[in-house]
């Protein structure tokens, strides 16, 4: 058996990344949805970094998504509508928030982490709700006007620019994340997830690693949030909501934890089904979503990626 170096790109991966280009031509009427898929995928990748690789469970990952969304929105509202500048500031704001709150998730079992992250996101929700003057409260942040990207590409009504913009950002961020998880740092995160007690005895500063990855995951989520603001030119308070945190967890679990691609596949399936079912009736959607979640937890713990891997093993 020859061993493949997992950090090298597999042919299937090239094929996978050709799909967004194909999609652009095949579904010209659905580019807005496709852009939303790319955003959800990036958000799921951000959670995968902290949950799938470092093993930190979170019920409040929307906190960073929301910080990014508001940062980009407020900046554009104040007249700095350059999208790339917005992304940079949103990333920074989310990273700082992530760094500051990372110290809360260092200690404690899963349950403590779940509740602490939930608590942090809830606090931000309440803050956004109360600071009506700044955030617009429940009405959302109005008057977000985006300038053309690099002064060249204006956001158009069909969502062409938005789609290309989101997909490129997704790809670049995915590529960076892929490097990170295959690096020695990524390996040590997996070590922490698999046996956090052993790691200090190897000389690993576990807390420093966790702070680093939590900050990185937060920055990623902030980018996803900023993209949502920039493509919809609006910020709703539910960027901080419990449902959003639960949804991204679900997308990741549906796709498969700990492979980066799982989050992307999960987002594609989730958003497509969402669009289709909520087109019929929003109520059905939530029902089937709940059922799907239960089925995945009980019968298909690996999600889509796990099932694919199993299938390829059976064939081999």
């Amino acid at each position: 058996m020859t061993r493949r170096d997992a950090s090298r790109w597999h042919p299937a991966e090239y094929a996978f990344w050709a799909l967004p280009i194909v999609a652009y031509f095949v579904f010209p009427d659905h580019l807005a949805l496709l852009a939303q898929i790319a955003i959800a995928a990036l958000f799921a990748v951000s959670l995968d970094l902290i949950l799938g690789y470092a093993g930190i469970v979170s019920l409040g990952h929307a906190a960073f998504f929301g910080i990014g969304a508001y940062a980009a929105g407020l900046l554009a509202q104040a007249g700095w509508g350059d999208p790339v500048l917005g992304l940079a500031c949103a990333t920074l704001a989310a990273a700082v928030t992530g760094f500051a709150t990372s110290f809360l998730v260092l200690r404690g079992a899963d349950l403590t982490r779940l509740m602490v992250t939930l608590g942090v996101a809830s606090m931000l929700y309440v803050l956004a709700n109360k600071l009506t003057d700044i955030t617009g409260g429940l009405d959302g942040l109005q008057g977000v006007e985006m300038k053309p990207i690099f002064g060249q590409f204006a956001f158009d009504l069909y969502g062409k620019t938005a789609y290309v913009y989101c997909t490129i950002i997704l790809f670049v961020m995915f590529w960076i994340a892929r490097r990170v998880v295959h690096s020695p740092f990524g390996l040590s995160l997996q070590g922490i997830r698999q046996n956090a007690v052993r790691m200090p005895a190897l000389g690993t500063p576990v807390n420093a690693r966790l702070v680093a990855v939590y900050t990185l995951g937060a920055a990623y989520a902030g980018i996803a949030g900023a993209l949502l603001t920039q493509t919809t030119q609006f910020v709703s308070i539910d960027v901080f909501s419990f449902s959003r945190s639960a949804e991204v967890l679900l997308i990741l679990v549906l796709g498969g934890i700990g492979s980066l691609y799982g989050g992307i596949l999960g987002a594609v399936v989730f958003m497509t089904v969402h669009e289709y079912l909520s087109g019929i009736d929003p109520l059905y959607w939530q029902f089937w979503l709940g059922l799907l979640l239960i089925v995945v937890v009980l019968f298909a713990r690996g999600g889509i990626m796990g099932t694919l891997r199993l299938a390829s093993k059976v064939r081999a």
Binding site: S7, H182, F185, A212
Partner: peptide, 12 residues
């Protein structure tokens, strides 16, 4: 080098 986050494990 365990904190290095760019070059893959296989490159070390």
């Amino acid at each position: 080098i365990a904190g290095h986050w760019w070059r893959p494990v296989s490159a070390h």
